[in-house]
Computed example of a mutant assay.
Amino acid sequence: MDIIRSKQFTADKAWGAKNIAQMNGITTRLHWTDQPYKWHINDGEEVFVVLDGKVDMFYRIDGEEFSTRLDVGDIFYASIGTEHVAHPIGEVRVLVVESAGSI
């Protein structure tokens, strides 16, 4: 059992994470960052939930690049094969649910 105050969570580096749960091969992690990630494609599906701050999410469909601004409470779902990258606006905290070992 654990109670996590997400707004109080920080990490010693960008995209540092607190592992919350691993259930049936799926991980749930709380991330803190103030730096962009890198373009990537996950090994499976990914659910990305903004808990604090704002994130510009960039993604590609058939080679064409798109972006959307995610605010607190917004959810980005990356289906298998979705190339994407998150760019925080200042400090953010996000909840990420994905296959264990995914990048």
Rank of each mutant, 00 (worst) to 15 (best):
M1P: 04
M1G: 12
M1N: 14
I4S: 07
I4C: 07
I4M: 10
R5M: 14
S6T: 14
K7I: 09
K7S: 10
F9N: 05
F9E: 03
A11Y: 13
D12P: 06
D12S: 06
K13V: 03
K13C: 02
A14M: 03
W15M: 03
W15A: 12
G16F: 05
G16I: 07
G16M: 13
A17R: 15
A17F: 06
A17H: 14
K18W: 06
K18R: 06
K18C: 04
I20L: 09
I20Y: 11
A21G: 06
A21Y: 11
Q22R: 15
M23I: 15
N24H: 13
N24G: 07
I26K: 00
T27V: 15
T27I: 00
L30Y: 01
L30S: 10
W32Q: 08
T33F: 09
D34H: 08
Q35E: 10
P36V: 09
K38P: 13
H40E: 03
H40N: 05
I41Y: 07
N42P: 10
N42L: 09
N42D: 14
N42F: 11
D43E: 12
G44T: 05
G44I: 04
E46D: 04
V49R: 07
V50N: 11
V50F: 00
V50E: 01
V50T: 10
D52F: 04
D52Q: 12
K54H: 08
K54Y: 02
K54I: 08
V55H: 03
D56V: 14
M57V: 05
Y59V: 12
R60M: 11
R60Q: 01
I61P: 06
G63H: 01
E64Y: 15
E64L: 13
E64D: 15
E65T: 09
S67F: 04
T68R: 14
V72I: 05
D74H: 02
I75M: 01
Y77P: 07
Y77W: 10
Y77V: 15
A78Q: 03
A78M: 06
S79P: 02
I80R: 03
T82Y: 12
T82P: 13
E83M: 10
E83R: 12
V85N: 06
H87L: 05
I89F: 04
G90Y: 10
G90C: 09
G90S: 09
E91M: 09
E91W: 02
E91Y: 12
V92H: 01
R93L: 02
V94N: 11
V94P: 05
L95C: 04
L95G: 02
L95S: 07
V97P: 05
S99G: 14
S102M: 03
I103K: 15
I103W: 15
